[in-house]
């Protein structure tokens, strides 16, 4: 390959904290890697593990999930529920053979524009080092090839 690998990362963020943090990063004119596609949701509690699977199935190399710090949730405890869910989901992905390093979790508040920019950069760098998720992509290609018959 002549061009360096550019990972596709999908970020599921909550609108009250992380999305506002991303906004702050933007209005503060902070530069960060353009590899991330942000999807805004009402709360991390709304993020079903299906979303993460679907992102991988549609060809994402990595997924980032981010919301309010514990205690800061707009709905008081959506992020606590989400935290338990991720804990279990993470070990499930690991056991199935989907490297847990490809799915990252973080808390970013509306005031942490700098943290958001730094996190996006570091996540992009980590996923770039891991390379494309070839095993999964082979499955996707196989499926699409079948569909054209």
């Amino acid at each position: 390959m002549s061009e360096p690998f550019e990972p596709k990362i999908v970020a599921f963020v909550c609108t009250y904290c992380t999305y506002a943090g991303a906004d702050l990063a933007g209005t503060s004119r902070l530069k960060y890697a353009p590899n991330v596609r942000t999807i805004r949701l009402p709360c991390t509690g709304r993020i079903s593990p299906m979303f993460i699977l679907k992102a991988l199935q549609k060809g994402a190399d990595g997924v980032l999930v981010s919301g309010c710090h514990p205690g800061d949730c707009h709905f008081t405890h959506g992020n606590y529920h989400a935290r338990r869910r991720w804990m279990v989901f993470r070990s499930l992905l690991d056991f199935i053979g989907i490297p847990p390093e490809r799915v990252k979790y973080s808390w970013i508040s509306a005031a942490e524009g700098v943290k958001f920019a730094e996190l996006i950069n570091s996540v992009t760098e980590d996923i770039r080092k891991l390379g494309p998720f070839d095993q999964y992509k082979e499955l996707i290609e196989e499926t699409e090839a079948e569909a054209t018959h």
Binding site: P70, Y80, H81, R84
Partner: peptide, 16 residues
């Protein structure tokens, strides 16, 4: 049910 409840001090070592 374990995934319909939570504790404030649940482990979160994996969260950045």
């Amino acid at each position: 049910p374990v995934l319909a409840s939570f504790k404030k001090d649940d482990s979160e070592t994996f969260i950045l």
